[in-house]
């Protein structure tokens, strides 16, 4: 599908507003919505698995090989803090976005 944006002439828009590239919302990054930033502390993580299904943004990747989570995908994380709240081990802390600590 050709790239569509606000400058695309009507002739090049898809007919009826259909989209033929399922899942292309991945091209739309929502990370800049974040005002709070989750920080992953791998040393404290016990890989219990409570955090990754709760993420509304699918921003906690889980590796296929060893079923372990890795660091956040900040391209999409909106900083809601749901993951931090469910972590029983203090392995996810929240800090203000853009502020070094």
């Amino acid at each position: 599908m050709t790239k569509i944006d606000k400058s695309t002439p009507m002739e090049n828009l898809t007919t009826g507003g259909d989209i033929y590239e399922a899942g292309n919302a991945r091209d739309f990054k929502t990370g800049d919505w974040r005002s709070m930033r989750p920080v992953f502390h791998g040393d404290k993580c016990k890989q219990c698995g409570l955090c990754f299904p709760v993420c509304p943004e699918n921003a906690i990747p889980v590796k296929k090989e060893d079923l372990k989570r890795t660091d956040f995908n900040y391209d999409y994380c909106k900083g809601c803090g749901v993951c931090s709240k469910v972590c029983p081990f203090g392995a996810i802390t929240m800090k203000e976005e853009g502020v070094d600590q």
Binding site: A25, P53, P56, E57, A59, N73, G79, C80
Partner: peptide, 15 residues
């Protein structure tokens, strides 16, 4: 259901 949707932060529906 991919990332890049525009539900509010912390919304219960996407998970």
């Amino acid at each position: 259901f991919t990332e890049g949707h525009r539900m509010c932060a912390g919304c219960g529906a996407p998970p």
